[in-house]
Simulated assay, not measured.
Amino acid sequence: MLIAADLVWTGDRFERGLGVETAGSHLRALRPLAPGETPDRHAALIGPALSDLQVNGSGGVMLNSDPTPEAIAHIVATQRARGTGWVMPTLITCEPERMRRAAKAAANAWGLPGFLGLHLEGPHLNPDRRGTHSAGPMGPLSDTTRAVVRDLRAQGIPVMVTLAPEIAGPEAVRDLADMGAVVSGGHSAATAEQTRAALAAGMSCFTHLYNAMPPMTSRGPGILGAAINSDAYAGIIADGHHVSWEMVALALRARPLPDRMFLVSDAMATIGGPDQFELYGEIIRLRDGALVNAAGALAGAHVDLVTSLRNMVTHVGVPLPEAYAMAALVPRDVMGLPRPGLREGQPLAEVLALDAALERLPLE
């Protein structure tokens, strides 16, 4: 099959006038279209599949409920079927033994195509900004977290740790960064001064900007204001429920450097699964496109990155190349990984084609 595209990301730039040939489940060739050649399909964009650094679950499975290699493989496969080629399964706040089990599962699953590493979102968060997380296990950086991060990094496995700067403190941030973890601020009520101290100590990212953070005020920028004004990376959930489109656009315009904002899904088990699941002994339900707990509070997101990318273009007005970069390229920069490209023989699970409506275009 020959698919022509308006834009093709080749690995270091977008190019026009190219076509992609596929054969079976692989990419056969990437080449210029010959004069008069008629493609089988036409795409608005073709490039490597997307990379998601925050996926709590998919396909009816939550990593917290099932911290096993099989669960990791299932989450990755579910996301790959939806255009996200590389996935960082995320373990939210839990007790030490569950964290150790998840780390062991990550080590056993390492090398699985599409498995990008492990995101530890907690337990070193601020209980007052816990969101749907359990407050019970929360506290300062523990020996368990240090040991887990050290062991995973020794095996070359990328690790992101979300923590609250005011709970962990600069020394803990420095310890994790020195181990090679990407430290991200989130679920926090830190002051701007505490946030800047964490950034100076090695924190390089912020988790789901706006969410689980106090709002800015004229005299109190807090972690949110410090994040937006910083050179650090910041993830954001573009589902229309967690952050209004106007506030997404405001953050994008306010950042001092380009290519510092990236999309995360914060996906839960309902992506490719049933419309409810259990977390911390509580039923989380899908209601009007949002996931809510018994109190009606948001509890993760029911969205994938392709939908998030489309939302950025259609609701926020971001140009397609920029929205694609936020979902496919900048996440790799966050983790210090090479940006992906297209190559002959590449599995189609690692290739994304979007049609004019920015829906996934079949490649087979």
Rank of each mutant, 00 (worst) to 15 (best):
L141H: 09
M326H: 09
F14N: 05
H119A: 12
V248M: 13
V303H: 12
A269L: 04
T207P: 08
A181K: 05
A295C: 09
R41M: 06
A164R: 03
R285Q: 15
V149I: 06
N56V: 04
E359L: 09
R343H: 15
A290Y: 04
I75C: 08
H74K: 03
E37R: 11
E166D: 10
S265Q: 09
E95Q: 10
G186L: 05
L2D: 12
A226Q: 03
L45V: 08
G336R: 08
L352G: 04
P137E: 07
D151P: 09
P331C: 08
G186S: 06
G272Y: 10
L224M: 13
L163V: 14
M312Y: 07
M268Q: 13
L291N: 13
L298E: 06
N311E: 03
E70N: 09
P256E: 03
F206G: 05
H74Y: 04
T191E: 00
R98C: 03
L263Q: 03
G122E: 14
L141V: 07
V303W: 08
A154E: 07
A29T: 12
I92N: 09
S204D: 11
A106W: 00
H74G: 06
A23R: 15
L320W: 01
M179K: 12
I236S: 06
A105G: 04
M213W: 07
S265L: 15
P96T: 11
M261W: 08
L257R: 14
V61F: 04
V264Q: 07
G202R: 03
M99I: 12
I271M: 09
I236P: 11
M261Q: 03
A198Y: 08
A323V: 01
L358C: 07
S58D: 07
N56G: 14
V182T: 12
P165I: 08
L329R: 10
A5L: 03
M1K: 12
A5D: 06
E359T: 10
A102I: 00
A238Q: 14
H42P: 14
R255D: 04
A212W: 06
I236L: 14
S58N: 04
V351I: 11
T162I: 09
G83F: 03
V148F: 08
D40C: 02
L116I: 09
R339W: 02
V159A: 01
R100Q: 14
R82C: 01
D259G: 11
